[in-house]
Design a protein around this nucleic acid. Structure first.
Lengths: 223, 223
DNA sequence: TTCTTCTTTCAGCTTTTTTTCAGGAAGATT
DNA sequence: AATCTTCCTGAAAAAAAGCTGAAAGAAGAA
């Protein structure tokens, strides 16, 4: 595999590079976060191995920055910290896995294999197409004619239920149940409000609406 | 989704809870197997995420116990064990899926989506065919020779009662009772008005009317 | 903390559905 | 035929359902 290693500690960096190379990997090693971002955007790597603490740009920020640019490849974070908070922040920042220093090389290799495997197969993006719209489950977005529209959590949930049942009228109660949870006490008008938000975001003013209302019953997408 | 998490490791539990919550799930977290059984029977969850090893009652036993009580919801087992034997025992015990620790959150989310979708039965259309007419209850429409006619709620109810009793004369009082509810205080003329609306919408001007009036008694459809 | 973004509610408005009203037409009864 | 009852008809009033912009409330990030 082609691996990008970002590690500012020269001794450790050299050691990791060496060990990975004896495992038949191809390693490129940088010592700063911003360098890592730069190299990752320039060349194609199968995986990035990134230290949490680095001068310039921290590993966390570098990772987040890459994800914001739509970077897809797995990032394995190396961290000396064991606090749950950091793990959480790391994963939220877009890291796929983390390894706590000091670590055993055998474990590093195992994780790399696991992440590498994921790259080959699936990372199944679940995409549904309805008319000119494309709903992307894993990214929570809608693409309409090449432009990607970001949806908030609720917006996405609502649209998801509708699209799952495309062609059918989904009654209001069903939508309220599935999106807000059974027995939740949100006002009925909340649904109206969200339908409106969705339409505002995803409808093309030129063409007809994606979400049709069926008065007295609910809403329908498609057909 | 509403998820019940049973995990005795406090750090891991907190992490999982956090990650699930950022994915818009509603999480309740318990640390013992017997607690899990108790909560699962008390409240409604869409899915149970259960650790294999737990003090008190093991995840395997908790799952088995729930299944014996007729519990239906999907259970996803978290296990550090990789042995084939354990997988088999877990699935035999009633688990729907298992995930081997350490796991990637992306994989956990994918599995949860898969299991969660199982519960959400796709909506079904209810269609009744009478002669050249097709009534669709969920859409409140009548299809006559390829053209779909939209009906309002009342209109549909009225037509539905008539068609359910096709061939028979349905007395006015029966119609009033069935459509407007027993003891409702609507004027008698309301029925006339609706018969008229229906005829206007669904009758083909060429042919005779679908709804025949039987003077002094009520109305009849067909035969 | 403060700021921003997401979620929810509110109040007024528009559209559609439901109901009523007033008059007229058609059968039935005498 | 005259009268009575029952049903039909068009229009208008009343009620319900949904839409909308703004604002309050909540949750998360800086």
């Amino acid at each position: 595999m082609k691996i990008l290693l970002a590690e500012d500690d020269v001794k450790l960096g050299r050691l990791i590079k060496h060990m990975l190379e004896t495992e038949q990997h191809h390693v490129e090693w940088v010592v700063r976060g911003d360098e890592a971002v730069e190299r990752a955007t320039d060349a194609v790597f199968d995986i990035i191995l990134m230290d949490w603490m680095m001068p310039g740009l921290s590993g966390l920020d570098a990772c987040r920055q890459l994800r914001e640019q739509g970077y897809q490849k797995p990032v394995l974070m190396l961290t000396a910290k064991d606090a749950v908070d950091d793990k959480v922040r790391g994963l939220d920042g877009g890291a796929d896995d983390y390894l706590i220093k000091p670590f055993e090389f055998s474990e590093l290799f195992a994780r790399l294999r696991a992440l590498g495997r994921r790259g080959e197969a699936p990372l199944q993006e679940e995409i549904v197409t309805v008319g000119i719209w494309q709903l992307n489950r894993t990214r929570r977005t809608v693409v309409r004619r090449n432009s990607e529209i970001q949806l908030s959590a609720r917006e996405y949930q609502l649209l998801d239920v509708l699209i799952q049942n495309r062609g059918l009228v989904v009654p209001r109660e069903v939508l309220l149940d599935r999106v807000w949870g059974l027995g939740s006490e949100v006002s009925d008008n909340n649904l109206d409000a969200y339908i409106r938000l969705l339409r505002k975001k995803i409808d093309d003013p030129e063409t007809e609406t994606l979400i049709q209302t069926v008065r007295g019953i609910g809403y329908r997408v498609g057909a």
